[in-house]
Design a binder for these strands. Sequence first.
DNA 1: TTTATACGCAACCATACAGTTGCATGTCAA
DNA 2: TTGACATGCAACTGTATGGTTGCGTATAAA
Lengths: 114, 114
Amino acid sequence: MKVFKRDVGQLCRRAPLFAALGDETRLTLLMKLGDGQPKSISQLSKGESVSRQAITKHLQVLNEVGLVRGVRQGREKLFQVEKKPLEEVRTALDLISRQWDDALDRLKTHLENS
Amino acid sequence: MKVFKRDVGQLCRRAPLFAALGDETRLTLLMKLGDGQPKSISQLSKGESVSRQAITKHLQVLNEVGLVRGVRQGREKLFQVEKKPLEEVRTALDLISRQWDDALDRLKTHLENS
DNA sequence: TTTATACGCAACCATACAGTTGCATGTCAA
DNA sequence: TTGACATGCAACTGTATGGTTGCGTATAAA
């Protein structure tokens, strides 16, 4: 499979998404939200070792890359997980993974024939 | 699908890997190495806008999470891509993706029945 | 109308990180 | 041997990031 320049660009544009996933606290938050039930900041802070404000900031980061969405409801802000961006990351990973496979296979074959 | 505590742990342990992927320069390096052909630091620096030392540091980061492996050969150090860690990330993402799907489906069904 | 809860805002701090520069070391080739 | 190339090491800089604290505001409940 040929690696097109636009694939490179596509993948590189995902960097902020990966960066957002590159933090334990944020991954924990995503797992907490993984049951689909919207949760408030206070709920999400409960049980965590860091302050509510820290959690708020992490939720902002996740929001900026579209991984979560927060809606004000009464005096609390309910967050829920957003599927689309994660799908995109999966697709991107599948792409490079397949490209690597192919490349390494070709390389192996090439070495065996020489 | 039930979300087991150990899944949460497993995913959270991937944070450094995601973090390593969360940088444009590093993603570019991975794409450059994606053809399976080992490449030296100088080769990888060529065409990039940052210094060779910067590239070296990025390669170190990629190496620490196992995404890349470097072997000294003569006066140059050849790097090549390592498939395993990427597979692990893909698996982890597939897992949460499926969990979210299931959860959101259940939630939707539940709402429709009430 | 109080009181408690949930959140937003802003300032501040420490550290991690991307990047640079300068210089030393090792290796190949003429 | 000498020069050119490839890398390693160390110090330094600016900025982003994760975290805290204090305080103000809005909303729900008593």
